[in-house]
């Protein structure tokens, strides 16, 4: 339904920001995003608008979450399921 790609804010000029998407830069409008955006932040692009500021620690937390859930070494499928359940629940509680 909606393509969204995260990129890093390089510069801000009023309601518009220059955002780097892994080597491709594009101007995005900041009309929709509901938090103050600063240089260095990650934002999600949809049709040339930033629709969400992704706090960097949340990127890290999701990654850590997945790492923790899926620490494959020696884990059996049912143990894994329990871990995944716990972690997904934890993610929900963080809201």
């Amino acid at each position: 339904m909606c393509l969204g790609v995260p990129g890093k804010v390089l510069a801000i000029d009023g309601m518009s920001a220059t955002v780097d998407f892994f080597g491709v830069r594009k101007e995005l409008r900041l009309d929709i995003v509901d938090e103050p955006v600063s240089v260095g932040d990650y934002v999600l692009n949809h049709v040339g608008f930033a629709i969400r500021r992704i706090p960097p620690d949340e990127v890290q937390e999701t990654l850590a979450l997945f790492d923790q859930i899926l620490d494959v070494s020696g884990a059996k499928a049912d143990l894994m399921a329990a871990d995944v359940r716990g972690e997904i629940a934890a993610a929900k509680h963080k809201e």
Binding site: L3, V5, F21, F22, G23, V24, K26
Partner: peptide, 13 residues
């Protein structure tokens, strides 16, 4: 695939 080609591809589908 170069990073920038991959990123542009994801942006425009």
């Amino acid at each position: 695939v170069r990073d920038e080609v991959r990123a542009a591809g994801e942006m425009i589908g």
